[in-house]
Amino acid sequence: MNENKELIYRAKMGDVAAFEELISGYEKKVYNTVYRFLENTEDARDITQEIFLKIYTSLKNFKEGSSFSTWLYRIAVNTCIDFCRKKKEDALPITDEMDGSGMGQGEHSKMPEDVMENKELKKALNDAIKSLPEDLRMCVVLRDIQGFSYVEISEILKCPTGTIKSRINRGRRVLRQILKDRELFFNKYV
């Protein structure tokens, strides 16, 4: 903890090496959160870098005694949401460049049925997530994909835990309905 405080102070003083040491371990998780939220690798890369640059310049505003991790993810989430809003305003469509599976369409026939079904489910879910409203999407990404606890999410988003639970419940139901409507996911169960 003390080591972390020293790194924070050195980073505040402009020490880039200290800053890089401070954020080591966070980069991948932040990148994944951004990626799951934006569903675009290029945007995710740029926005993640933007997030860390913002953290570097905003570090002087970080209050010691609070959680650095929570503060970092709050900046990440807000940057993502701002980016989405800006993109909407610019009327630029969010392109789906990656389905998360790392696998091309042509490989489907080579996979066992259950695995193939799973890949289809993932792709369908990726599409469905993009359709979620931002507030629901961020809660679902943080909880169901990144694995944050309800309390952590409520601290990151500065919302009551009850609100977070409600958003996650609604987000899951919306996802279910989207998949149901597209008849991609639940056909054989309905």
Binding site: E27, N32, R45, S101, N118, L121, K122, L125, D144, Y189
Partner: peptide, 23 residues
Amino acid sequence: EDIGRILRAFNSFESVDLPDDFM
């Protein structure tokens, strides 16, 4: 069953590596 399947699908999402030139 549906919500369970959604969560299982989310859990199977693999972590995406950072681009090589990121750092």
